[in-house]
C-alpha cells in the first residue's frame, strides 16, 4: 500500500515536470507575439522592443523557463502579460468556479447514470431497457453547448423561470447562486449522464454474466438483491475509471458551456489567455489542470484498492 502510494507520488512529480517543459515549449512554438497583441496595429518597432522588455519575453528561453518553473512550487505563477495582475489568485478563483460546476454536474450525472444504466442492463431485452439505451445514445450525440442553448431558449427566454446566464458566488447570495447554476449544471449533467449511463449499462451487463452472480442466485438471493450485493461493486470499477477521465476532461472541457452561460471558469480563462498569447497565464492554468488530473488519478487509484481488495494485494 505504502509502496504503491510512493510509486504514484514519484510518477506524479515526473509527469508534472515533463508537462512544464512541454507546455512552455508549445507556447513558444505557436505563432503570435504577446507584445504585438498588447500594442495592436500601428505599433512601432521601438514600442514593441520596449513592451517585450517589460514583459520579459526578450530574455533567452532557458532564463524565462527557469524563472517561471522555480516559482511553481511556492504557487507563485508570476504576473499576467495582459491583466497585469498576479496570476495565482486569479487561478485560485477560477478553479473554484470550475470545480463547483463540474463536480456538481458529475454528481448529478452519476445520479442519473447509475439507476438508469443498471435498469437498462437488467431489462436489456425489454422495451424499457431499449428505450433507455436509445435515449442515452441521443444524449451522447448532443454537444453540451447545444444542450445549453436549448435550455436557455426554453427556460430563460421562453418561460422566464431562470436567468439565462451569469454567476453569483455562493457566499454572496446563495439562492441566486443556485438559480444561476441550474441550467449550466443541467446542460453538462445531461450529456455526461448519457455517456455514463452507457458505461454503467455495459459494466452491469458484463457482471450479470459472471459465475459468482449465478452462485449468489443459487444461494437463494433474488435477481436484484444478488446484483446489488455482489454485482454492483464489481461493475463500479470501470465506471469509476470513466468517471475520473470525464471529470478531468470536463474541468477545461466545460469551457463551451461556460461561454454559453458566461461563467468565469478556468476554461474561459485559458481560452482568453491563449488568444492573447498570455504565455505565463496559459502555462500556469495548464499546470493547474495537470495537477488536478494527476490528483484525480491518485485518488481513483486509492479508490480502486478500496473497492477491490485484489488490486491492493497485487501491489
Amino acid at each position: 500500500m505504502v509502496v504503491r502510494l510512493l510509486v504514484n507520488l514519484s510518477r506524479f512529480i515526473v509527469t508534472f515536470f515533463a508537462a512544464t517543459v512541454a507546455v512552455f515549449l508549445l507556447m513558444r512554438a505557436i505563432p503570435g507575439d504577446p507584445a504585438q497583441i498588447a500594442l495592436g496595429v500601428n505599433a512601432s518597432p521601438e514600442l514593441l522592443e520596449e513592451t517585450r522588455r517589460q514583459l520579459g519575453t526578450d530574455r533567452p528561453l532557458p532564463v524565462q523557463y527557469v524563472d517561471w518553473v522555480t516559482g511553481l512550487p511556492q504557487g507563485n505563477f508570476g504576473v499576467s502579460f495582459v491583466t497585469r495582475q498576479d496570476i495565482s489568485p486569479m487561478i485560485a478563483d477560477r478553479v473554484q468556479v470550475s470545480l463547483i460546476l463540474v463536480m456538481l454536474s458529475m454528481v448529478v450525472a452519476l445520479l442519473i447514470a447509475i439507476p438508469f444504466g443498471t435498469l437498462a442492463a437488467v431489462r436489456h431485452r425489454q422495451p424499457s431497457g431499449v428505450l433507455i439505451s436509445a435515449m442515452s445514445q441521443l444524449g451522447v450525440a448532443i454537444p453540451g453547448f447545444l444542450a445549453g442553448i436549448l435550455l436557455v431558449v426554453v427556460f430563460a427566454v421562453g418561460l422566464g423561470w431562470l436567468p439565462s446566464n451569469g454567476w453569483t458566488p455562493p457566499g454572496e447570495d446563495f439562492g441566486d447562486f443556485l438559480r444561476r447554476l441550474v441550467l449550466p449544471v443541467a446542460a453538462l449533467a445531461s450529456v455526461q449522464g448519457a455517456i455514463l449511463t452507457r458505461y454503467v449499462r455495459s459494466a452491469v451487463l458484463e457482471v450479470m454474466s459472471e459465475d459468482y452472480l449465478r452462485t449468489a442466485r443459487a444461494k437463494g438471493l433474488g435477481p436484484l438483491e444478488a446484483l446489488v450485493r455482489h454485482g454492483l461493486r464489481n461493475a463500479s470499477i470501470p465506471v469509476l475509471t470513466v468517471t475520473s477521465v470525464q471529470l478531468a476532461a470536463l474541468i477545461v472541457g466545460a469551457v463551451v458551456v461556460e461561454r454559453v452561460f458566461v461563467i468565469p471558469g478556468l476554461g474561459s480563462m485559458l481560452l482568453d489567455a491563449v488568444g492573447n498569447r498570455d504565455m505565463l497565464t496559459v502555462q500556469s492554468v495548464v499546470m493547474v489542470l495537470v495537477a488536478i488530473t494527476l490528483i484525480i488519478n491518485l485518488v481513483v487509484d486509492l479508490l480502486y484498492t478500496v473497492l477491490d481488495p485484489r488490486i491492493r494485494k497485487k501491489a
Partner: peptide, 22 residues
C-alpha cells in the same frame, strides 16, 4: 472524505473576484 475535501476546496468565496451577476 472525498466529498468533504471537494466541498472545502470549493469554499464559499468561489468566483468572488469574478463577482456576481446580481
Amino acid at each position: 472524505v472525498l466529498a468533504a475535501a471537494s466541498m472545502s476546496l470549493t469554499a464559499c468565496s468561489a468566483g468572488s473576484s469574478a463577482g456576481s451577476t446580481n
